[in-house]
Simulated scan of single mutants.
Amino acid sequence: MNTPEVNKRSILGLGRHVPTLSYAIQNVLMSIASMIAATLSLIFTMSIVLPLSTARVILPHSLFRRDIPGGRGKVVLIVGASRGIGFNVLKQYADEPDTVIIAASRSIDSLRKAVIELGDTRAMIQCSELDLTTSKKQLAENIRSLDKQYGPVTHLYEVSGISNHLKDGAQWGLHATEDMINVNVSGTVASVLTMYELMKERQYGKICIVGSVAGLYGPANMISYASTKSFINTFSSSLRVLAAPCGIEVVTVQPGFIDTRMTRQMRGQNSTVPGAEFASAERMAAHMKEAVEGGGIGVVSWPIRQSVMMYALKSINPICDEVGRWASMKMGMAGKKIT
C-alpha cells in the first residue's frame, strides 16, 4: 500500500473525531452550567461554611470532641500496613498509650520485619495476615475475627491498593484490570462495609479510605487504576453521608503524587512528573490522622496544589476532558505503561 493512500485514510479517520455541531453546543452548555454551579458553590462556602469554620477555631475544642464509648482506648485496624502510606499511618499511632494497632497486610513477613525494625512502642501492635484477593465472604469473616480478638475496632484505615506499575513485566489487559478491581474495589468495599456494620451496632467508629486524585482526573493510559480509584472516591464520599446519623465518621483520602513503591516504579517507567512533585508518605499519613482525629474534614487531598488542579479539571466538558487525557498521556505523566 502506497504512502499517500495511508495518509489519506489517516486524515479521513481523524476527521471522524471532529465533534458534530450539536455535540459542540451541548459541551458549551455543560461548561456554562459548570461555571454557574462553581459560582454558587463558592458563594455558599464563603458565606456559610467559612464563618462556621472560623467559629470552630474560636470555640473550645471540647465542643467538637467525641470520646470513645465506655472510656475504652483506641483499637486501630490498618489494612495495607506493611509499607508506604499504611506503614506511616501505623507510625502515627505507635507512641500512643492505651492504643492497640492491628497491622494487617497480605505481605505478613514484610509487615513483621517492618514492625520489628520500628523498635519499642507505647502502643500494642498486633500483626495479622489479611488478603483482599480472597473470597469476600472469607475476608468479612477474617475482619470480624480480628474485631472479636483485639477489638472492638474504633478506627479503620483502608489503605490497600495495587497497580501493574508494581511489576515491570505486567502488561495491561483484562487480567491486570481484574486484579485491580479485586483489590482496589471489591476487597476495599468488603473490608469497609464489614467494619461499617460492626460500628453501626456500637454507634461509634472512624473509617478512613484511600482513593486517589487519579480518580478525579488522569492520563488515558491510567485507565484501569484511575477507574478503580474513581469508584472508591465516590463510594467513600457517599458513605460519609450515610454513616453520619449512625455516629460513624468517614474520611476520603485522595493522595496526589506521593513517594511510595508504586510511584517509584512509575518513575522508573519513564514518568515525566518532576521528582520534586512526589511528596512524603509520612506527611500524607500525618494529614490523614489529623482529619480522622479532629473531625470536620471529609476529603484529605494532599499535596494541595495537585488536588486543586485535579478538582478544577473535573469541571471541564467531555470534549476538553478527552483532549486533556490524550495530552497528559502523550506528555508521559504516568509513564509509558498502560495501567
Results as ranks from 00 to 15, higher is better:
residue 171 Q to F: 10
residue 7 N to C: 11
residue 275 G to L: 11
residue 45 T to V: 12
residue 68 I to N: 06
residue 338 I to L: 15
residue 60 P to H: 07
residue 22 S to R: 15
residue 251 V to L: 03
residue 287 H to I: 04
residue 78 I to S: 00
residue 259 D to M: 09
residue 92 Q to I: 02
residue 53 S to E: 15
residue 121 T to V: 06
residue 322 E to Q: 12
residue 22 S to N: 14
residue 24 A to P: 01
residue 254 Q to S: 10
residue 275 G to H: 13
residue 163 S to F: 01
residue 129 E to V: 05
residue 132 L to R: 00
residue 72 R to N: 09
residue 207 I to V: 08
residue 246 C to D: 14
residue 84 G to V: 00
residue 148 K to E: 14
residue 253 V to S: 02
residue 330 K to L: 13
residue 209 I to S: 02
residue 44 F to W: 14
residue 34 S to G: 13
residue 260 T to M: 02
residue 28 V to G: 08
residue 99 T to Q: 05
residue 208 C to N: 04
residue 240 R to K: 15
residue 186 S to A: 15
residue 73 G to I: 02
residue 6 V to L: 14
residue 300 V to S: 03
residue 245 P to I: 07
residue 260 T to I: 06
residue 5 E to S: 15
residue 92 Q to S: 09
residue 169 G to T: 13
residue 19 P to H: 06
residue 227 S to D: 03
residue 135 S to G: 05
residue 158 E to S: 08
residue 182 N to S: 13
residue 298 G to C: 07
residue 76 V to P: 01
residue 327 A to T: 10
residue 74 K to M: 10
residue 225 Y to W: 06
residue 64 F to S: 09
residue 130 L to G: 00
residue 206 K to G: 05
residue 268 G to M: 08
residue 266 M to E: 13
residue 225 Y to A: 04
residue 113 K to D: 08
residue 76 V to M: 05
residue 251 V to E: 00
residue 17 H to P: 08
residue 71 G to N: 06
residue 210 V to S: 01
residue 26 Q to A: 12
residue 110 S to I: 01
residue 201 E to W: 07
residue 137 K to Y: 14
residue 14 L to T: 09
residue 151 G to N: 07
residue 271 S to L: 02
residue 39 T to S: 10
residue 339 T to S: 12
residue 194 T to A: 11
residue 114 A to Q: 03
residue 262 M to Y: 03
residue 65 R to K: 14
residue 208 C to D: 05
residue 13 G to S: 11
residue 44 F to Y: 15
residue 219 P to F: 02
residue 179 D to H: 08
residue 228 T to C: 06
residue 2 N to I: 12
residue 99 T to I: 07
residue 215 G to I: 00
residue 42 L to D: 09
residue 234 T to W: 13
residue 69 P to N: 10
residue 185 V to W: 04
residue 284 M to Q: 04
residue 4 P to R: 07
residue 327 A to W: 09
residue 134 T to A: 15
residue 89 V to N: 00
residue 28 V to Q: 04
residue 127 C to S: 09
residue 184 N to R: 00
residue 216 L to M: 11
residue 304 I to V: 14
residue 140 A to T: 10
residue 43 I to N: 03
residue 196 Y to K: 10
residue 328 S to C: 09
residue 283 R to V: 11
residue 141 E to D: 11
residue 7 N to E: 14
residue 140 A to H: 01
residue 216 L to T: 03
residue 111 L to A: 02
residue 60 P to N: 08
residue 247 G to V: 06
residue 314 K to F: 07
residue 157 Y to Q: 02
